[in-house]
Amino acid sequence: KWEEIAERLREEFNINPEEAREAVEKAGGNEEEARRIVKK
């Protein structure tokens, strides 16, 4: 599940997989929260 979210974030925000994974981890697997983290 987290991998899927990280993949979507990576494609959408054009970030590297590591950044995407970190955002999802910080968000506890919550996609909306992960998006907010990435946008900062």
Rank of each mutant, 00 (worst) to 15 (best):
K1F: 13
K1Q: 14
K1P: 10
W2L: 07
E3M: 11
E3H: 13
E4K: 08
E4L: 11
E4N: 10
I5F: 04
I5A: 03
I5W: 02
A6N: 03
A6I: 15
E7G: 08
E7W: 10
L9V: 04
L9G: 00
L9I: 10
L9T: 00
R10C: 14
R10P: 01
R10V: 15
R10N: 04
E11V: 14
E11H: 12
E11R: 13
E11L: 10
E11I: 15
E11N: 13
E12G: 03
E12L: 09
E12I: 09
E12T: 06
N14F: 09
N14Q: 11
I15R: 00
I15D: 00
N16P: 13
N16V: 08
N16K: 13
P17S: 13
P17A: 15
P17Y: 15
E18F: 10
E18R: 11
E18N: 12
E18K: 08
E18T: 12
A20Y: 00
A20F: 03
A20P: 00
A20M: 01
A20E: 01
R21C: 07
R21W: 14
R21F: 11
R21G: 02
E22P: 02
A23Y: 04
A23I: 11
V24F: 02
V24A: 05
E25Y: 14
K26R: 10
A27S: 10
A27T: 06
A27E: 01
A27V: 04
G28M: 14
G28W: 11
G28K: 14
G29Y: 06
G29H: 03
G29Q: 03
N30R: 05
N30Q: 06
E31R: 03
E31A: 06
E31K: 04
E32V: 08
E32K: 08
E32M: 08
E33P: 01
E33Y: 07
E33R: 05
A34Q: 00
A34T: 01
R35S: 04
R35N: 03
R36S: 08
I37V: 08
I37T: 07
I37G: 04
I37D: 06
I37S: 07
I37A: 08
V38R: 02
V38I: 15
V38P: 02
V38Q: 02
K39H: 09
K40T: 15
K40F: 15
K40E: 15
